[in-house]
Each structure stands twice: as C-alpha cells, then as structure tokens.
Design a binder for these strands. Structure first.
Lengths: 234, 234
DNA sequence: TCCCAAAAGTGAAATATTTCATCTTTATAT
DNA sequence: ATATAAAGATGAAATATTTCACTTTTGGGA
C-alpha cells in the first residue's frame, strides 16, 4: 500500500544549496536570469529523470532523494554506474557529451529536482569562468567516485566489491549504519558487476557471520571493521 | 642496446594543436602570458610524467606519444585505467582533484610534452568562461572513454574485454591494424582486469584461430569482424 | 482477501578464471 | 660472449563465479 503523503510545498530557491553557492559567484542580474529558467519537479521510485540517448536540454539539481546512473546495454544487460544522494548536480558535466545522455538517471525513492535550461545556463557559464570552474570541480568529485568504483571493480573479487558497495551506501548515500534499501538484489548485482545469486549468497554468509543483518529491504551493518577487512582482502 | 636517437628540436608552440585552438579563444595578451609559462619536456618509455599522490602544479599537453594512466593500489596490485595517444590534454580535469593526483601518468615509448603552470592557467580560465568550457568538453571526452571502459569491464567476460582492448588499441591509440605493443602481458592484464596468464592463453587461442598474429611485441589484427563478434558475445 | 507475478533464497552442477609449477625465450648488465 | 633476471608460454589443479532448477516470500492489483 502506497503512503499517501501530502504534497508539501517545494523548497524555495533561496533555501537551495546550489542557489546559495551560485549567488557567491554570480551578479544579481544573472541570478535573476537563472531563477526565471528554473522549474521544480518531483519524481517517484523508478521514474526516469534522464534517458540514455536523449538530447539533454537541462541540468538537474537533486535537492532531495537518491538516484542511480544506469547504462542500458540491451534488454538483458543493465549496469549501474553509480548511486548518489542529494545535494548533487546531475546532468551536465557528469552525464552528457555532445548533448547526448551517455546513461540514464533514475529515481530511487522520492526525489525533488530543479531543472535548469542548459542554453541559458551555458551563456552564464561563458560569461563567468570562475563560476564555471567551481561547477567543474563539483563534477570532478563525481569523476573521482567513478574511478574509485572502477578500481574496486577491476581488482577485487566479488566479496570485496560487495563489501565496498555496502560501505559506500552506508557512508556516502544513506549516511547511516542502517538503511532501507529500495534496490532489488538484481540491481545490487548490476552495481557490483556480478550475478544476483552471488549477491544473495554473499548476503546470506554475511548474515551468518553477523557482519550485516538483512530483514527484507532493511539492511544494518553490524561489524563495519570486518566489512572493511573483507574489502581489503578482496 | 638503446637507440641513441638524436635529440631533435622540440615542436614550436605555433605548430601545436592546443596552441592553435587556444588562440581562437584567448586575447593576444593571454596567449603571450601562456607562452611565457610553458616549457617542453621529453619522456622515455616507463618514465613517470605525473605521480599518484603528488601535488600537481602543472597541466601537461601530450604532443607526441602514448601514455598510460595507472593506479597503484599497492606493490602487488597495479591497475591501468586508460591508455591514450597524442594529442591530448593530461592533468587538470581528467586527473587531479583538489590538486592531488588521483593516479600516475607514465610514458609508453617516447613522449613530447608541454607543461603549463596551473596557477597562471587557472587565472586565464577564470577570466574566460568560453575557453574553460571548451577545455571542459575535451575533458569530458576522456570521461566518456572511462565510462565505456568501465562498462566493458563490468559486464563482459575476459575474452570480450581482451577483444575490446585490442580493438581500442588498434582504433584509438595506434590507429593501425598492426602495432608494436610496448606493454608487457602483465600490463595488458592490468588494463583488462585479469591475470597475465589469462592474457597469454587468450592471445594463444586468438593466434590459433587466425584472429590476431603476435610476434614478440608486434601484434596484428587479422580478423577484425571476428574480434568484434567476440566483444559482443563476451 | 486472494491471486499472481516478481523478488528472494538455496544448493548443486557447469563454467570461467586464477594460481601454480615448470619451461623457453628475450633483454640487460657485466 | 656469458650470466642473470625478466617476460612469455603452457597445461593442470584449485578456486571463484555463474547458471540452473526449484522453493519460499513479498507486494500490488483485481
């Protein structure tokens, strides 16, 4: 049964982190210009925010919620490149190349997102190199995450990779030892680069060894240091 | 015995691709400023251009040669993130984050490189958003390569990955069906994310099946379409 | 509420990959 | 030229991972 939560007023621009940071760099005129080209949207679990292959005309600001970056190779083969939580800048640097989305971005649970028209935004960037560099650095953080992700994938065995993912989700996405994981086992497998049975088996063993406790979609890390050891050995 | 090749005059700035593109965006004064802060270097096979963990003060322009991006996890575990050929912008966007090199960049064969002082360069970028965006897009190309690389690694078996690497080297690095591969089998394994024996076995089989022909470090792709099929099936 | 489909879970067989032992070839230094 | 170490090569055993067949649980819609 779906929780019929009331639709609250969307966040005001003046309370938005992105807006606050932007106002440090931009003139009042530019800020005003930006405001006129922003609109707010809500996405539900599983809804596509950006679609792989589409021509992207917007940059999205993830104000609240969690999203996955997923690459659809074909109907059978899917792949999760990254999972990130608000606040983040989506689209733009970390996503498109020549205006074609390299991958999709999909909501995991409810998401509040502000959309900015790229053409307008691009003009502002061209006029303001310092501001562009700040955003650039933000995009690079995402790049670093990808590289570390890649490294985990490239030279660890499945146990090590699963440990890495659990630590990553706990520390960087849910920011809690205990979290309600809306991803299916299949999706976790698409993130870890292994079969879904492998995720299930590994979760079982970690449960038996009291390293984690799973209860349906709820997951609690009981022994973080043991998980870190598995990551190192993997 | 090492070939004692004579040191030729380094390329003039006015003939450099980067310089030509830059001059489309920058004022004469900025170009002049840039020129004063550039110096040219030559690297030999195996020499480190940027060292992982170092504080980077320069952006490097790879004018001639091939380099690898390598991540050193520990003495035993190394990993090649990417291999690229000139002309490319190294350092900066695709490499550092908060001035710390995320990975090393090492010469594969002889390389000609121009170094630009970052502090001076950063000032120019801040003054010129349009120029910054152009470089930004260039960096994103590198990002796309990483993602495609990641996808290959994440959901293909070793045969498919090795096929991908051979196609990539042929099409994007050496730009030839036949090339003299200075990488050891161990290094290819570090790029493919598998054991060196696996590379050797797979090369043997591909040789037997007349898909490639290896002769020491020389490698020729005999049947590109078969290699593409292996990539798809992998 | 019940029904159905999707997801979760389990264990065994099949397959892929790594590790190991050993040998040959190649490159480098003396 | 010779010695030595590093790289390349090979096949078999050990290990990791996937696939498969099947059962149980969960969640949403009629």
């Amino acid at each position: 049964m779906k929780d019929q939560s009331e639709i609250k007023d969307l966040t005001l621009c003046s309370q938005c982190l992105f807006y606050k940071q932007s106002s440090l760099f931009l003139s009042e005129k530019d800020i005003h210009h930006l405001e006129k080209n922003i609109y707010q949207l809500k996405f539900k679990h599983g809804e596509t925010i950006f679609k792989q292959g589409d021509k992207s005309r917007h940059i999205a600001l993830l104000n609240h919620g969690i999203v996955k970056f997923n690459f659809e190779e074909n109907k059978e083969r899917n792949l999760i490149l990254s999972i990130v939580s608000a606040p983040k800048i989506l689209g733009g640097a970390n996503m498109f190349y020549r205006q074609r989305n390299l991958f999709s971005i999909t909501a995991i649970g409810d998401c509040d997102i502000c959309m900015i028209d790229m053409n307008e935004f691009g003009e502002i960037l061209k006029q303001n190199g310092k501001y562009a560099l700040m955003l650039f650095e933000r995009a690079m953080e995402m790049f670093e995450t990808s590289i570390l992700n890649y490294i985990s994938l490239a030279n660890k065995n499945v146990n090590g990779r699963i440990a890495d993912i659990l630590l990553y989700l706990s520390e960087h996405v849910y920011k809690n030892q205990s979290f309600h994981l809306l991803l299916t086992r299949k999706e976790i497998a698409e993130f870890a680069g292994c079969s879904k049975e492998n995720i299930i088996h590994t979760f079982s063993h970690l449960n038996d060894d009291n390293v984690i406790r799973t209860d349906g979609k709820n997951l609690t890390i009981l022994d973080k240091s043991k998980l870190q050891m598995i990551s190192r050995l993997g």
